[in-house]
């Protein structure tokens, strides 16, 4: 896991290309496997490395594929990012240790889920569909709405071209 995270850290410097983002997603999927989240890793591999790469490439095809030179020097964003990061790291030291069985996350509702009331061995499925059914209904609706929004945005119009350039 440490190795793949190190590779991930190297990967972040090369964010110029979409393909690198795909590689990054795939590495993230392997990290997730190392963290025992097999369901999530499966989805991340299919979505991150597969579908979103295709989508980004498609969007790049529609737009110009080279980026303009940045107009500003990136010092201000860099400062903002580093200071926020430092603050967050400082805050992170107050969080429970990695893999601490006494951490609140393991003591609150997880034991109840683990009792397997619904007799489905894969607890992720059970929680997803049964315990948190409303949640998942909402998520499904969000996905549906996003799809509908994309249809609305990208559907071919009947040649109504609105000119935004200054009309005299």
């Amino acid at each position: 896991m440490a190795l793949s995270v190190l590779v991930l850290m190297r990967e972040r410097n090369l964010f110029a290309a979409v393909v690198l983002f795909g590689i990054y997603s795939f590495l993230m999927a392997t990290v997730l496997v190392a963290l025992d989240a097999v369901d999530v890793a499966m989805t991340e591999a299919a979505v991150g490395a597969g579908i979103s790469t295709v989508l980004l490439l498609g969007a790049l095809l529609l737009c110009k594929s080279e980026e303009a030179k940045p107009a500003h020097r990136p010092w201000l964003p860099l400062t903002v990012a580093i200071s926020t990061g430092a603050l967050l790291v400082y805050g992170a030291f107050g969080l429970p240790d990695f893999s601490d069985p006494q951490a609140p996350i393991h003591r609150h509702v997880a034991p109840r889920y683990m009792q397997n009331e619904v007799d489905v061995p894969n607890v992720v499925t059970a929680v997803l569909a049964s315990f948190r059914g409303y949640d998942t209904l909402g998520e499904t609706t969000v996905v549906f709405t996003a799809g509908a929004g994309i249809i609305a945005l990208l559907r071919r119009r009947k040649k109504v071209i609105v000119e935004h350039e200054g009309n005299p």
């Binding site: 097999v38 369901d39 499966m42 989805t43 061995p121 894969n122 992720v124 997803l128 569909a129």
Partner: peptide, 9 residues
């Protein structure tokens, strides 16, 4: 239900 998997995946 038995292995990793489900609707989203």
């Amino acid at each position: 239900d038995f292995g990793p998997g489900g609707g989203f995946q």
